[in-house]
Every structure is written in C-alpha cells, then in structure tokens.
Design a protein around this nucleic acid. Structure first.
Length: 294
DNA sequence: CCGCGGGCCTGAGAGC
DNA sequence: TGCTCTCAGGCCCGCG
C-alpha cells in the first residue's frame, strides 16, 4: 500500500506502538525481500529503543537508540499489522498470545509496549535495512529524493525550477521521486485532474523560459497538496481491500476522480467528458481528455 | 538526459 | 471447477 498518504497513515498507526518502546524480540521469517535483510537483523534490533518514527517519501524511518535508523519500504504489497501481544511484553508468553500467522508474514516485531507488529508482503518488493543515522542523508536510496510535497518550502517556484528543461511528460516527471517525493500512479493522476492539466503535457511547460513558475505550476502544486492532505485525512486508499495497521480500511479510494474509472463520466462540474485510460512509461494513466486541457 | 523493455514477486479478476 | 491471461499503488537496470 504504497503512496505517500498510505505510508503516512501507516506511520501514524505504528507510532503509538513503536515510539518509546524497545524491540523485545524480532522474528525474521523470510529474509529475501527486495534486498536481503541485514545480517543479524533480529539480533541487531533486540533491546534497541525507537526514539522516533518518521517518514521520508515512501520510506518509514525508525530512529533507534544506538545511532542507527531502521529504513522500511512497503513496495507494492507491503502492510503492517499491530496486534496486542500478551499485554505485558513478556517474551515467554508471546507464543500463546500471538495472533494467527498469515501467509507472507515476513517480519514480526515484539515491542516492550506489549504489541506485536507484523510486516506482511506477498510480492516482497518491500525492504528493511539498517543505516547509521549520520549516513542516512547520503545513502543511495535517500540521496536523490526530491522535496516533500507537504513541506511549506515546496511551492510553484520550486516545482517549476525542477521541471524546467525536462524533456518528458508531466505524468512521468511527477512520478519521478527525484522531482517530488511520495507521489505514485494514483496521486499523480488525481493531482493532474484536479489541476486541469493533461498528463501528456511537457513537464517543462509549467515554467517560463527563465525557470519561473506559471499559472499551471501554481495550480499543480495546489492540487498536489490538496489531494495528499485529503487522502491522509481519509486514512489513505485501500485497493484490493488492503488493510491498515488496525485492520480498518482507508476511505480515499471512494473519492478517486479518475484513477481506475476508465469509461465513467468525468465528475468535474459542467464537464461532459469520459475518463480515458492510456499507457505512459509502461503505467496506466487515467484522465479526462475534455477538462484536462490546460 | 530520456523512453523503453525487462525484471523482481504473488494474487486477483476476467474470460473461456 | 480450472486454466490462461492480464493487470496491479514501486523501483531498478541496461540499452539505444
């Protein structure tokens, strides 16, 4: 369950269970995720305290006592589930109190807060790694990531500057984590629709020749921020009944305006268009050819 | 720098 | 019922 709003929703679900708690026991059932789990993964986590649980782009970052950061990514199909263990965090009692294991439960954290946190990932595109805190910013996975779209500093000027001179479509540019962090196929489509911009438009055309933002850049940044905020407020999107950390479902999928709505009427007021699906860069793009004409 | 194709994996849904 | 096919919210690599 992958894009920024879903990862942020997961972060908020895990935060009360993880922050301030120690890893009492860690089960690494399956180590071959997108990359192999670090050597001695369970052993290296045991006894460490989670000082803070943050998010950067689609990565969850658990800052640990002892100076390392546990980096976690959900890939396409990863999810976390929080269950009460035995209420006391007593190692010997986990066996009796644990919730029933499911297929693809690859990693389980037993926390001193008395909860079990299970990472489930059928496709194994997710990853977990340990990075020294002082090396996190320069880590290859983090280094090139673009600005956080919900930061105040992310504005039309910044996006225009980044897109100026790019010889690619708006759809491809916004999907690129180096341009802006955390957007994926759904929210790129949704943001472009809200901004009335065609996904096929050249990315560079949201900037003037000098790299200054134009009205399209202003509309696009506003649409990105709005759709992400609304989605987070709704608990993210739950496709294929993907569950949140508490087993509940996010609600934002009911408010998609274009994603997976090919053939349906455009919901823009006064627009009589029909949502179309095309393929860009090997991925589905959903848009309204009629009102996304800017 | 860019697009493209392929790959990594499993599961759900459609169509026959 | 089962088979085959396509598609899926991410990301990475190599090629031209």
């Amino acid at each position: 369950m992958p894009e920024l709003p879903e990862v942020e929703t997961v972060r908020r679900g895990l935060q009360p269970a993880m922050e301030g708690a120690r890893f009492v026991k860690v089960e690494a059932n399956r180590k071959d995720l997108r990359r192999p789990l670090p050597q001695d993964f369970a052993h290296r986590l045991k006894g460490r305290r989670v000082l803070a649980l943050r998010r950067r782009a689609k990565y969850l970052l658990a800052e640990l006592s002892g100076g390392d950061v546990l980096v976690m990514h959900l890939g396409m199909s990863g999810s976390f589930r929080v269950c009460s263990d035995d209420g006391a965090g007593t190692p010997g009692r986990f066996h009796h109190a644990r919730s029933r294991a499911r297929a693809h439960d690859h990693v389980v954290f037993h926390m001193s807060s008395g909860v079990g946190i299970t990472f489930n990932d059928p496709r194994r595109f997710g990853l977990m790694l340990l990075v020294p805190a002082e090396k996190l910013a320069e880590h290859p996975l983090m280094k090139a990531i673009g600005p956080e779209p919900l930061d105040r500093s992310f504005d039309a000027g910044m996006l225009a500057r980044i897109c100026a001179g790019k010889a690619t479509s708006l759809k491809a540019a916004l999907s690129d984590q180096k341009v802006v962090a955390g957007l994926g196929n759904i929210y790129v489509c949704e943001a472009l629709h809200r901004a009335c911009l065609s996904p096929k438009r050249d990315a560079a055309t949201i900037a003037t020749r000098s790299g200054a933002p134009n009205a399209r850049a202003v509309a696009l940044v506003a649409a990105i921020k709005t759709v992400l905020r609304d989605a987070i407020a709704a608990g993210g999107s739950s496709l294929r009944n993907h569950q949140l950390t508490d087993g509940e479902l996010g609600e934002f999928q009911h408010r998609f305006r274009v994603y997976d709505r090919a053939g349906e009427p455009c919901v823009t007021t006064g627009c009589t268009g029909v949502i179309k699906r095309i393929v860009q860069n090997g991925r589905s793009t959903f848009f309204c050819p009629k009102c996304q004409n800017q």
